[in-house]
Design a protein around this nucleic acid. Structure first.
Length: 310
DNA sequence: AAGACGAAAGTGGTTGA
DNA sequence: TCAACAACTTTCGTCTT
């Protein structure tokens, strides 16, 4: 049917063979790796229409929907606009004595769209949200999620005493974690005008008040992004994930910063595969120091009995 | 000369009295 | 509110490739 890119949880590589191409087979409701045929996901939902159309005219006729509603626009994109043309529904001219009335209606409509402090607050916050997620190049799903979190925060009157920007950044941070595409607090602080400390505090506050329960971030979630920024192959990625999984079994990762663990695992993997990167490079991308990489790296190699292979 | 290694002192945040 | 504490950083000197 369609050959989309497999996007579940933002996974971009096959854990089995490291391939990056996937087929969405809607007939069987499976996602399959193009390289090795591994079934990566079952019971997927076909999001296409249930009807078929053979030409453009039919498609137009059978479509029953307009633009999707979105939480990233303050009125969910459900605005009605009054046409600026002075024509009625049949295309005929509107009587002159009604033209002034139409003008007043349009003005009213515009004003009512963004009315009241809450609406204006939302409109501002959501453009801010969009700007931030654009510079971080976050997927649409995360933006939607962040907007709903923000809306919840507003609904529960949690923004009082806090800056809009702070809450926006915190919502984004939470959404990123929930969607398993973690960004560090540093990265968030970089794009918004809020300090890392403030974002962290607001985030914890939101999480508590809104009952957002989030498992601690797994180092694995950082691997694909760091790897691609370092220009490392899929093989290195799967090796790194392998290492992290083993490390988690032995509880070597608890209490340690996930970025540090991810960085060390990637460093080790890059050496093992023969695409060596310097500690400096990996450290810069991951936002940790070489020393941290060394410490993690030492622990990992010792505890996982792989010192010999290095 | 660049990178890796490690010791020592410093920093910001959490925890428990 | 304060001190203890663990993780992480900064800095710097030494060793390895």
């Amino acid at each position: 049917m369609q050959n989309d890119v497999y996007d579940k949880d933002n996974a971009t590589i096959c854990p089995n063979c490291g391939n990056t191409d996937f087929i969405n087979d809607y007939e069987r409701a499976e996602v399959i790796c193009k390289g090795c045929g591994l079934v990566l996901e079952e019971n997927i939902i076909d999001q296409g229409p249930e009807w078929r159309a053979f030409d453009h005219e039919q498609r137009d006729k059978r479509t029953r929907v307009g633009a999707p509603t979105t939480y990233t626009i303050h009125d969910k994109g459900l605005t009605t606009m009054i046409d600026w043309k002075n024509k009625d529904s049949h295309g005929g001219a509107i009587p002159v004595n009604n033209v002034a009335q139409m003008y007043r209606l349009r003005k009213l409509q515009r004003k009512s769209r963004i009315s009241g402090a809450t609406e204006r607050n939302l409109a501002f916050a959501l453009t801010e949200l969009d700007r931030n997620s654009s510079t971080l190049s976050l997927p649409r799903s995360v933006r939607e999620d962040a907007s709903t979190i923000y809306r919840d925060a507003v609904k529960n009157k949690l923004i009082r005493g806090r800056s809009i920007e702070g809450v926006v950044a915190a919502s984004l941070y939470a959404a990123c974690r929930r969607c398993k595409v973690p960004r560090t607090l540093d990265e968030l602080a970089e794009v918004s005008r809020v300090t890392k400390k403030e974002i962290g505090r607001t985030y914890r506050f939101l999480a508590r008040e809104l009952n957002i329960k989030l498992p601690p971030t797994s180092p694995i979630d950082y691997v694909p992004r760091f790897a691609s920024e370092l220009g490392l192959s899929g093989e290195v990625q799967s090796r790194a994930i392998d290492i992290i999984e083993k490390a988690m079994e032995k509880e070597l990762t608890s209490g340690k910063g996930p970025t540090g663990v991810a960085a060390a695992a990637l460093y080790i993997a890059s050496v093992l595969v023969g695409e060596r990167k310097t500690q400096r490079d990996v450290a810069d991308i991951a936002g940790v120091t070489e020393v941290t990489i060394r410490n993690r790296y030492k622990e990992l190699t010792e505890q996982l009995e792989m010192g010999v292979t290095l």
